[in-house]
Design a protein around this nucleic acid. Sequence first.
DNA 1: TGGTGTGAATGCCTTCACAGCG
DNA 2: CGCTGTGAAGGCATTCACACCA
Lengths: 209, 209
Amino acid sequence: MNKKKVPQGTISRLFEYLRELKNLSIINIRTVSSSELGERLNLSDAQIRKDLGYFGSFGTSGAGYNIEELKKALEKILGKDKAWNICIVGIGHLGSALLGYPGFKDHNLYVAAAFDSDLKKVGRTVGNIIIEPIEKIKSIVSSKRISIAIIATPANTAQKVANDLITSGIECIMNFAPIKLDVPENVKVEDVDLSHALENLTYFANNEK
Amino acid sequence: MNKKKVPQGTISRLFEYLRELKNLSIINIRTVSSSELGERLNLSDAQIRKDLGYFGSFGTSGAGYNIEELKKALEKILGKDKAWNICIVGIGHLGSALLGYPGFKDHNLYVAAAFDSDLKKVGRTVGNIIIEPIEKIKSIVSSKRISIAIIATPANTAQKVANDLITSGIECIMNFAPIKLDVPENVKVEDVDLSHALENLTYFANNEK
DNA sequence: TGGTGTGAATGCCTTCACAGCG
DNA sequence: CGCTGTGAAGGCATTCACACCA
């Protein structure tokens, strides 16, 4: 078991492994080798063994990995065995879609609050969540023990919202606004800016053909 | 001017530079140095100079970069001076939100078609786009010269959709489905899987505190 | 003098290759 | 014999450091 820093991409790949293990489990396969798994995911066998190596030894020489065991181990590593409260800030087009997103519960995530600065929206119910005014972030985030926030506001208010969230003790932010948020080191930001992704594509379409 | 392979992250950062240059331009600043720009974006000055160096020399020794000039240069490099047709496949919660997303036109992107496999949805109009049956992908994508597709279908149909898109000559795919698409080398895929981003966050919340 | 452009150094991640184990 | 686990090698991206230029 290696205590060195785990590389960026390793965590994302562990989730891919877990997804694929579930698929294999469904079709009643019991065991898989790193090369079989790699072939299914377009990754090298060495990559997979190395990634797993950061967290322990899960395989059997000559036989590969027991799928049920590895699944359990990965679920533990990745925090899939616990539930998390999340909130969504900014209930525009995107925020509304997220409020209705059925995939959260698959990951043990529960939308515990929603906020918007527009007083016309405040008080409305979407799904079974009441939209709260943005001023209540501080009280609600801490009282409901929300650890993950999704920012779906316009760029110009995102930093202010982030600041409020941080003083309320948020741990993680998923940021849809097209700006780089300035946050302390102990807060993790995951940027999911649609424009950004699209921009990468237009660059490719423009240059690589 | 360097002809070597441009690193992964450089393109994304060029877009950040461009955004920030626009902000500076608005407040009537004419010139910026790599270190000033870096401070605003939380990046090192060397990083910025290196990134720009892949495409040419845009600065003046001792003075920094002329903002208007650099803006124009970046827009050209990044293909922001052209318009692109896109389509959206899978008009569920997410696909509908994307159809209503006002940000596309900011990037010169035009939604030229929408597809869904559910015949109850086919024929409906969202915004001013008629939802077409998924079987028409091949004919419409090529006839309307669509270069970018957004896949917002469930995971189990995403690969099939991708195959259809590829045979129709699509160049770029933005993939919201939680699977790794298998595509030829000349097609660029940008994964924007919400689950994936959320998973990274739960890992952080679980382990780094 | 202040700031660019860029080879060289560093550091991180992936791939290689193989000893060792079941 | 097949496959894991892991040091070593290799490759790619970022950072350093400085010659050179306005």
